[in-house]
């Protein structure tokens, strides 16, 4: 118990950060994990830094799912706000695990990786922007 449902994960689950609809987004995408029925959608507002680097100015997520997928989405959106698109695209499985700070079984790993997958797929829409 002490490792899996740690207080900070439950905290993000009960009161997720950056949860909700974005009025005017530049990119948005939604995906479902058909195996467990989790559904996560992300909306991004783009910005620029130093007049050239494109950044994530704001990000919001919506969806339904288990504590792991929703808490991860909450933590991930907090982390990437203000980062450049290039830096976010480089985020990997290991970064998500570090964020969560817990060990996951292979089945629950899918829950934890869904938000990053959705975020990356949302960013691929940025090509022609």
């Amino acid at each position: 118990m002490d490792n899996f449902y740690r207080e900070n994960i439950l905290d993000h689950y009960r009161s997720p950060r950056n949860f909700g609809k974005m009025e005017e987004s530049d990119l948005s995408y939604e995906e479902e994990n058909t195996l467990c029925g989790d559904r996560i959608g992300m909306a991004i507002k783009l910005g620029t830094k130093n007049n050239k680097q494109r950044t994530i100015e704001d990000v919001k997520f919506m969806g339904e799912g288990c504590a792991v997928s929703l808490a991860t989405a909450s933590m991930l959106t907090e982390k990437v706000k203000g980062l450049s698109i290039g830096a976010v695209k480089k985020l990997k499985k290991e970064d998500i695990l570090k964020l969560l700070g817990i060990e996951l079984t292979p089945t629950r790993l899918k829950c934890a990786l869904l938000p990053l997958e959705v975020l990356h797929k949302t960013l691929t829409l940025a090509k022609d922007k």
Binding site: M1, F4, Y5, G65, C66, A67, R108
Partner: peptide
């Protein structure tokens, strides 16, 4: 409570249930 969360919670108490579809 999502079925997977409940199953994992019970699992850590040594109770094995199936979760999902």
């Amino acid at each position: 409570v999502h079925a997977h969360d409940l199953a994992q919670f019970l699992d850590q108490k040594g109770i094995a249930v199936r979760s999902g579809h």
